[in-house]
Amino acid sequence: MDQLAALSAFVHSADTGSFVAAGRQLGLSASAVGKAVARLEQRLDARLLHRNTRHMTLTEEGRIFLDRCRRIFEEVEAAEAELAQASRTPRGRLRVSMPLVGMLLTPVLANFMRAYPEVQLDLDFTDRLVDVVEEGFDAVIRTGRPSDSRLMSRNLGRFRLRIVASPAYLERHGVPRTPQDLAHHRCLHQRSPTTGKLRPWPFARSEAIEKVNLPEAMSATAIDPLICLAVEGLGIACLPPFAVRNEIGDGRLISLLEDHVVETDQFSVLWPAGRQLTPKVRALVDFLAENLFREGDA
């Protein structure tokens, strides 16, 4: 604290050009300010100010040191402001971009709304690559690894996709024991809305598996139709675990080939780098990190 007080005395003296004026701003005597600066110079073994009875000017060392001191006090002010922000109640409109699969996270978002009733969620569901800064989003939630260096990010959790089918379908067509067996099954695919390509099913890479041509019974850019058609017994689908948690839990869908599904995906939340994290964004980030995935989803 004594060191910060000495730095403050130096900065105010340099800004005002006078120990007397600096003392008025700091509530100290001119003598106390002068002694603080002198002790600082002694500790640094450098003269910071040229001074006589009428004038006070910075030395070359003083100019360099003054820039450093300003940065120190800016960081202190930023830390105090951040702490004050964190202690405030999260409130206000929170504009968030989410992938289309994010529609399946509605129960988690409902719990967030109950926990933070003063935050008004403004959700934009799209799989296109949005410009977070230009389009004015507070945060963006995406699957996959973040790649935009302008954004800060936090990993919300990793998950493994599930290969699922209904008991009725398996009774009629048999249970696939290996990925190669899927060549003789009706496969329900998700198609990327941006590239138009079918999303690959995440099996372990091997020459045998790479040669498997998964039949395309149907495809959709959204996940909801795939869940419905799989439950209706019309094929086998590859879906995120949180999308079929209830269906697997009540037996409407059965998880298949779990030993062969090795690749995982992840959800991340991103926000503009350099922007102070507001209480409402911090609340969303922390809440999703704690509640997005349940045990068994990974």
Rank of each mutant, 00 (worst) to 15 (best):
V212Q: 00
P200Y: 00
V175T: 15
W201G: 00
A217D: 01
P200Q: 03
M218T: 12
Q180T: 12
F203R: 00
A204W: 09
S219Y: 12
H184Y: 13
L188D: 02
H185K: 09
P200I: 00
K211N: 11
A217T: 03
C187D: 05
I209Y: 09
P202V: 01
A208N: 13
M218N: 08
H173L: 09
P176F: 05
E210Y: 10
E207P: 03
R186Q: 08
L198N: 10
R177Y: 04
R172T: 08
R172K: 14
G196E: 04
H185T: 04
S219E: 10
P179G: 00
S192L: 06
T178Y: 05
T194Y: 11
L182N: 09
A208W: 11
Q190C: 06
Q190S: 06
T195G: 11
V175D: 03
L188Q: 00
G174K: 06
C187F: 05
Q190D: 03
R172L: 10
P215K: 02
S219V: 09
M218S: 12
H184C: 11
K197Q: 15
P179T: 01
S219N: 13
G196H: 03
G174V: 02
S219M: 08
K211D: 05
L188E: 04
W201D: 02
A217R: 05
S206D: 14
H184K: 15
F203A: 00
I209P: 06
S192W: 03
K197T: 12
F203G: 00
P200V: 00
I209R: 12
D181S: 08
T194V: 15
A204V: 14
A208T: 13
R191A: 06
P215S: 05
E207N: 10
L198Q: 04
P215Q: 07
R172G: 07
C187R: 01
T178C: 02
A183K: 12
A183W: 08
D181A: 12
H189Y: 04
L214W: 10
E210M: 13
G196P: 09
L182C: 12
K197W: 08
A204Y: 13
T178R: 11
E210L: 14
F203H: 02
P176Q: 07
M218Y: 08
G174H: 06
D181K: 01
N213C: 13
E207R: 12
L182E: 03
E210R: 14
L182I: 02
M218G: 08
L198E: 06
R186V: 01
H184M: 10
I209H: 12
R205P: 13
T195V: 10
E210V: 07
A183R: 14
R205G: 14
P200W: 00
F203Q: 02
L182S: 05
A208E: 15
Q180R: 06
R199Y: 11
R191T: 09
R172N: 05
P176I: 05
S192I: 08
H173D: 09
T194I: 15
K211H: 11
V212N: 01
L182Y: 04
H173S: 13
T195E: 10
R172C: 01
G174S: 06
G196L: 07
F203W: 04
Q190R: 15
R191W: 02
L188S: 01
R186C: 05
P193D: 04
H173K: 10
V175K: 13
P215W: 03
K211L: 11
P193I: 06
A208L: 14
R191K: 11
R199A: 15
R199D: 07
P179E: 00
P179Q: 00
E210F: 07
T194H: 11
W201A: 04
Q190H: 12
